[in-house]
Computed example of a mutant assay.
Amino acid sequence: MQQHLLAQVETEDGIITVYETQELYGEKGRFRILQFADEAIQGALDLEQQGRMIFEYPRALVHLMACHRPQFERAFIIGLGIGTIARHWADRQIVSAEASRDVAELSRRYFGCEQLRVEIGDGGLLLAEQPDGRFDYIVVDAFTSGGTPSHLTSPSFYELAASKLEEGGALLFNLMGRRQQDHSIQMIYADLQERFAHVQAFILPAGRGHDLHNIILAAAQTPIRCQARQMAGFIPHDL
């Protein structure tokens, strides 16, 4: 399928590309793509339905945010991507932390993120600068070629996040992992249980032959509320 290149930026971590295509995962249409050096698609915008969220995981995260704490006001998102979640909640007070200035600039220029509040730098350090008890949600949706940065999946980060959440707020992770015997995911889950009274895992089943799955972890001091049918295909996962 022919691709129309819009931008290409060479960074220390590789090349970041923005392009348009008329087919995405077998679906015909007009799509604008943000892609990293390993050819992993970091975000996709449907140019014919720009309010649509193409991927399942942001739909599931948005549902959790809407259901667990419907009247929430403030959220801190680590990992901007193309700003899908922040743009959806444009009427709320959302702070997005993005480690790459290039990603932030491309998202502003090509994905409608001009009005978003974006801070450039390490998400953990930027979160530490925020007032305690400020946020209803802290969302970790940050990836490098090695996966989610390890300092964002550490007990010290969970302590930090808990201090920045309002009572009843939740810490949400979008992760990639194996369905069975994934030591890293199990460790994150166990460490979260040490700090939060309620931790729940959801997994997006993949087709046969797919080893890696999207896994969402939600942690809070109060029971986590959601509706299974609204989780965009994610199902509860026993860790």
Rank of each mutant, 00 (worst) to 15 (best):
M1K: 06
Q2P: 15
H4G: 08
H4D: 12
E10M: 04
T17H: 12
T17K: 15
T21P: 02
Q22S: 14
E23T: 12
E27I: 15
E27P: 03
E27W: 15
R32T: 00
Q35F: 11
Q35V: 11
F36K: 12
I41W: 11
L47Q: 07
L47H: 05
Q49Y: 09
M53I: 00
I54V: 15
E56L: 07
E56Q: 13
R59D: 10
R59V: 10
A60D: 12
V62D: 02
H63D: 03
L64T: 02
M65Q: 01
A66R: 13
A66C: 10
H68E: 09
R69M: 15
R69Q: 15
R69T: 15
P70Y: 15
F72I: 02
F72Y: 05
R74I: 08
G79K: 14
L80W: 00
G81R: 06
G83N: 04
T84E: 14
T84F: 10
R87A: 11
H88W: 09
W89E: 09
W89S: 05
D91S: 14
R92M: 12
I94K: 07
A97G: 09
A97F: 07
E98D: 08
A99R: 08
S100C: 08
V103S: 03
V103H: 01
E105I: 09
L106D: 02
R109Y: 03
F111R: 10
E119H: 03
G121A: 02
G123R: 06
G124K: 14
L126K: 00
L127M: 02
A128D: 05
A128K: 05
Q130H: 01
P131D: 06
P131W: 04
D132A: 13
G133D: 01
G133P: 00
R134D: 11
D136P: 09
D136V: 06
T144F: 01
T144H: 00
G146E: 06
G147H: 03
G147I: 05
T148Y: 11
P149I: 00
H151A: 11
L152M: 09
S154A: 14
P155C: 01
E159L: 08
E159Q: 10
E159M: 02
A161H: 05
K164M: 08
L165P: 08
E167A: 13
E167F: 07
G168H: 10
G169D: 13
L172Y: 06
M176L: 11
G177W: 04
R178D: 10
D182Q: 10
S184M: 00
S184P: 00
Q186L: 11
L192Q: 10
L192I: 10
Q193W: 06
Q193M: 13
E194C: 15
E194I: 14
R195N: 13
F196A: 07
F202A: 05
P205E: 01
A206N: 05
I215C: 05
L217T: 01
A218L: 02
Q221S: 14
T222E: 12
P223E: 06
R225L: 04
R225S: 03
A228P: 01
R229A: 12
M231N: 03
A232N: 04
G233R: 10
I235N: 03
P236R: 12
